[in-house]
Design a binder for these strands. Structure first.
Lengths: 222, 222
DNA sequence: GCGGTTCTTGTGACAATGTCACAGACAGGT
DNA sequence: ACCTGTCTGTGACATTGTCACAAGAACCGC
């Protein structure tokens, strides 16, 4: 599916390119496949290409010295991973990394092609700037959450966000803690408290929501 | 100083523009002066221009519903404030705002001139992308700090960062708390503890460092 | 099955941080 | 001096983070 030029239909932001630009993109872009859990960029791994995701998701997370982590945001199909070009281009050492959360089909755009596209296409520029804006607002939201929001509310929100079609979550407490940037014990305690209230039931690697409405009411609380 | 075209010498990132590009910039850029404490952008204040700071600083901060705040980063002379164009261009409601921390001399670049410059100048593109990268890494560092670092260490670091030539800080505890995204009482307690150890002396609106070396040792601690 | 191993979860004790309610201290104006 | 608003100090308590450790559950080889 990625070796012809149909892949670009996955990118709503790139629909209105002029034929010449479209052509350039088709000629220079390199399809690639990344395996689940591959580290796409990270401390000491400079990236040379802009990444466009055709399928799958990439998780961007921050590591701390003490071993704790927090998920900053996810890049989904149809979006570009601007960090690979911009953030890693020059700046000081920081410890964010990007990991393929599933198998990923992606398009690599080399640096000079990227630059050419920025020069010739207003649509491409809009596409890139939207990506940047989205990432920055994502980071703002993360900061707001960790700096100002109560942990029980954040746990409740994650439960609702991550539940599947059967109101269940196949995650460990440790994985929840990583999402929230806190310690596993904190998550365990909150979940246990929710279980005590009858809002959910816990088993190994599985959380089943029994009263999503109640959880939702907590998640709404200021 | 801003009504001729000498202002551009303040911007190291814009030194190597070609004459034609330089000319465009000189013709279209609009000098402006912003008073101290002016709100440059914020919730419900869309901005239409890219801002280049000739002098002064702009503080970008996040507000919470509960009234607490945190400083995200500062824009200094010679830098561009990318949020004014990109972040506010479309996205959902968030509550960051930019405030002139001093009187500010700035250059406004209208949206279409900005776009033109992005199209024609590789140097200008590099300038803009560096600005974006810097902001994103700034935000990463803020997240790392508030999520993973101990408060006593963060207070110690701020003391060293903000001290003047006489090892003193003319700030209130409330202002320190805003920098750190915490409550005033927490800062007061930490400072009192430092005073007890003989590291500094406290008086109303003034902190005088007595043993910066000791404070530095704490600031270094993992 | 059985023992060994690893991953996951539970828990208590304690430290660090955040919240709330006040009181007192200080500076400036009148 | 008095009033007023701002700034600082403090105790009590709630929430969150850290540490140490134990118990359960899944998995594997045998």
């Amino acid at each position: 599916m990625l070796n012809d030029h149909t892949w670009r239909f996955s990118f709503p932001g790139l629909e209105n390119l002029s034929p010449a630009v479209s052509d350039l993109l088709n000629k220079q872009a390199v399809p690639a496949v990344l395996k689940k859990d591959a580290v796409i960029f990270g401390p000491g791994k400079p990236a040379e290409n802009l990444l466009l995701l055709g399928s799958g998701t990439v998780r961007v997370q921050q590591l701390s010295e003490s071993g704790r982590e927090i998920v900053l945001y996810r890049v989904h199909a149809g979006e570009s991973c601007v960090l690979t070009t911009a953030c890693l281009l020059a700046f000081e050492d920081y410890s964010a990394e990007g990991v393929a959360e599933t198998n990923v089909e992606a398009i690599l755009i080399p640096r000079d092609t990227f630059d050419k596209l920025m020069a010739v296409s207003i649509e491409f520029r809009a596409f890139v700037f939207e990506a940047y804006s989205k990432r920055i607002t994502d980071l703002f939201m993360v900061i707001e959450e960790i700096a100002f929001k109560r942990m029980d509310i954040r746990v409740a929100q994650k439960l609702l966000d991550f539940q599947d079609a059967h109101k269940a979550l196949h995650v460990t407490h440790q994985q929840m803690a990583l999402e929230l940037g806190t310690a596993r014990e904190v998550v365990s305690r909150q979940l246990k408290e929710f279980e005590r209230r009858g809002w959910l039931t816990l088993s190994r690697g599985l959380i089943e929501l029994r009263d999503p409405a109640a959880i939702g009411r907590l998640a709404q609380a200021s």
